[in-house]
Design a protein around this nucleic acid. Structure first.
Length: 222
DNA sequence: ATTTTCAAT
């Protein structure tokens, strides 16, 4: 029971979409894996991950920039992808590959390195569809930040990136935290913060759309 | 007005 309380506290602390997220030196990733079978998809697996800093020996040898992507939840997820999505890489009897659809709810948006590796991976795995909901944007204040570019890269790789809104927190609460035990109560400014972050993400991804538009124009010979 | 960030001590 106290374990459950701890989980609730952790969820609220790490997923709170506050403007100045002091002390959130961890990142959590809640995921849902669905196998797509025609028009409807079946829920296959779900769970959550946290970035791990388990390799203390390597820590001293690796630089921060090298270590970070290895231990991030998103790459931790990729490590377990084979187990989470059986048959993802295999070919089935009728030649068609199994299709999976994965949804993430991350407390921080991915760093540029992770985004880059993820995008690279996804372009090679067209039978995996990824949707990412983020609670807060990681290092996205600078106009020319690598993290902003990383998010655009993900979008170009077909990832649907969105900011978490009330319904997403509600869903996470019900699915990963307190299954129907107690109802989700929004914190102050949840909606306001979410609206601000939605606008910010839209501004970040905008150049991506104008680029696509330009590509479309050149294709049309305009 | 200003504050922070997948830590490093």
């Amino acid at each position: 029971r106290s374990c459950k309380l701890k989980l609730i506290r952790k969820f609220i602390f790490h997923y709170k979409n506050v403007r100045w997220a002091r002390g959130r030196h961890e990142t959590y990733l809640c995921f849902v894996v669905k196998r797509r079978t025609g028009p409807d998809s079946l829920s296959f697996d779900f769970g959550h991950l946290r970035n791990r800093s388990g390799c203390h020996v390597e820590r001293k040898k690796l630089t921060h920039s090298l270590l970070l992507p290895i231990l991030s939840p998103s790459l931790l997820f990729l490590r377990h992808l084979g187990a989470l999505c059986p048959g993802l890489w295999g070919s089935s009897v009728d030649g068609a590959r199994l299709c999976y659809s994965v949804t993430w709810f991350c407390s921080w948006s991915p760093c540029s390195k992770c985004a880059q590796q993820l995008a690279h991976f996804l372009l090679q795995t067209p039978n995996l569809r990824l949707r990412i909901f983020v609670s807060r944007l990681y290092f996205c204040d600078e106009e020319d930040s690598q993290e902003r570019e990383g998010l655009r890269q993900l979008k170009r790789a077909g990832v649907q990136i969105s900011v978490m809104t009330y319904k997403d927190y509600f869903y996470c609460w019900q699915t990963f935290v307190a299954r129907r035990k107690r109802s989700f109560k929004a914190w102050d400014d949840l909606h306001q913060n979410s609206v601000r972050l939605v606008r910010k993400l839209n501004r970040i991804l905008q150049p991506c759309e104008t680029e696509d538009l330009r590509d479309g124009f050149t294709l049309l010979g305009l």
